[in-house]
Design a protein around this nucleic acid. Structure first.
Length: 400
RNA sequence: GCGUCGGUGGCGGAGUGGUCAAUCGCAAUAGACUGUAAAUCUAUCGCCCUUUGGGCUACGGAGGUUCAAAUCCUCCCCGGCGCA
């Protein structure tokens, strides 16, 4: 494989590790948080702002870019990175998450991190309202934009991702619902494994030189035997790295991640798909995760919630109206260096676009710092201390 | 001065005899958000009591008609418009 390589710089304590992912477009110092730019844009930010906030790479989405602007435009642009003017490593998600979000999750209040338990009537209601339907061969989507029908298979996902041109792509998988019971999780991951094999085969044909790295995606929900078996099965395949996907209960993200990283080979990178609350990242890094992506910093920022070292705060809250201190005093992001809570509060309340921009800069910077801080601590041999201190101060809910 | 239309909760604006503490929008106050259907969504929003419940005060003001009035009548106050 050309250009792609993972190197462990330091391991421990436990499964935690610091490393470097080399790609032909640059390196990623891990652990790292990768901001999400679904439609070839990290919402509300210019690539320069994303970079200044500390981002080393961005992750875009296959389904969304396939729908718009469509592959013809992306190909003419020379790939999505060039299209969006991002100079650095890139990832694309396979569209597997949309199997979930437009499928069983459509119209329901389920997200990939569950608060509830496995549902008795899983998948039985409103099936006709869903926009995605799964069969053995692939998934048929109704476009959420205009209702038109589209079909994704492992082969078409690979084809699209090859054209999108990311450095790291993911095998086409099914992101399962946290409410899915054991039997469903089992059959889903079995299908996902068949899709993984087909993804590898299809990708080899498209990219015989292997200039593009492909990661397999571990599934299995919250069930230990399924997670472990999924990891073992995928580890046998010729993937360049692994994604850990699907659903978790908030309380056992790190447990489930631990089951998986025990089974995955150490010499390949592990990406925890879609996870990104600070406390989740710290716990997952302890279990040997290298990279994360998550929409939560940018979405929260647009919706008025910002991260601080003591927890999240909602900038529209009245208490910030005349608070002229920075969101986080010791934060060196552009936002905290130049603006007060009072100003941000004003922007948010007035619905000004700059609110989303300044908030997003701070939030992605914050999460990037959580990951890079962990890296530094691992390298300096005090990760346990770093993790403990971070978790103790964070979650103390609220600031001031 | 005459005529006419109108005065509703923080604002705009419905309602024009009972199902009205009063549709709706905005603002306000909280909350949610984890591979982006998301610059979105949810809740509360007259006062008091522990409740899916109850009590009180309210639709410019004062009277009145009626079993029942934000809604009908009379007078008064205020505003827009038209005519003098």
């Amino acid at each position: 494989m050309k250009g792609f390589n993972y190197e462990i710089i330091k391991s421990g304590p436990g499964k935690a590790r610091a490393g470097i992912i080399h790609t032909k477009n640059g390196d990623i110092q891990t652990p790292a948080f990768i901001p999400v730019g679904t439609k070839a844009t990290v919402k509300a930010l210019t690539p320069e702002e994303v970079k200044s906030a500390g981002a080393q790479a961005v992750l875009a989405n296959t389904y969304h870019l396939y729908l718009a602007p469509g592959m013809e435009t992306i190909e003419k642009a020379g790939g999505f990175a060039k299209f969006m003017n991002w100079h650095g490593p890139t990832f694309t998600d396979s569209g597997g998450f949309q199997v979930f979000s437009l499928g069983l999750a459509f119209g329901e209040k389920v997200s990939k991190v569950a608060r509830g338990d496995v549902s008795e009537d899983f998948g039985e209601k409103n099936d006709h309202a869903k926009l995605a339907k799964i069969d053995e061969d692939g998934v048929t989507f109704s476009s959420h934009v205009d209702g038109s029908l589209h079909r994704f298979t492992p082969e078409s996902s690979m084809d699209i991702q090859w054209k999108l041109g990311a450095d790291i792509i993911f095998a086409f998988d099914e992101c399962t619902s946290p409410q899915a019971p054991y039997e469903y999780q089992k059959s889903a991951w079995e299908r996902t494994h068949r899709w993984a094999k087909r993804s590898i085969d299809a990708h080899e044909k498209l990219d015989p030189q292997n200039v593009q790295a492909i990661f397999g995606v571990v599934q299995g929900g919250k069930f230990e035997d399924l997670r472990k078996e999924s990891a073992r099965e995928l580890a046998k395949m010729n993937f360049d790295g692994f994604g850990i996907g699907g659903s978790f209960s908030k309380d056992d993200i790190s447990t489930a991640v631990g089951w998986v990283t025990e089974e995955l080979p150490d010499d390949k990178p592990r990406h925890l798909l879609g996870i990104g609350e600070p406390e989740d990242m710290i716990l997952a890094i302890a279990e040997g995760i290298d990279t994360f992506d998550c929409v939560t910093p940018t979405r929260n920022a647009r919706n008025g919630t910002l991260y601080t070292s003591t927890g999240k705060v909602h900038m529209k809250n009245e208490r910030f109206k005349n608070d002229f201190s920075a969101v986080t005093e010791d934060c060196d992001c552009y936002t905290c260096s130049n603006f007060s809570k009072a100003y941000l509060s004003h922007l948010y309340k007035q619905g000004e676009m700059l609110a989303g921009t300044l908030g997003s800069i701070h939030n992605i910077h914050f999460l990037i710092k959580v990951a890079s801080g962990a890296r530094k601590a691992i390298l300096e041999d005090n990760f346990e201390d770093y993790a403990k201190k971070f978790l103790n101060t964070y979650k103390q809910s609220a600031i001031d």
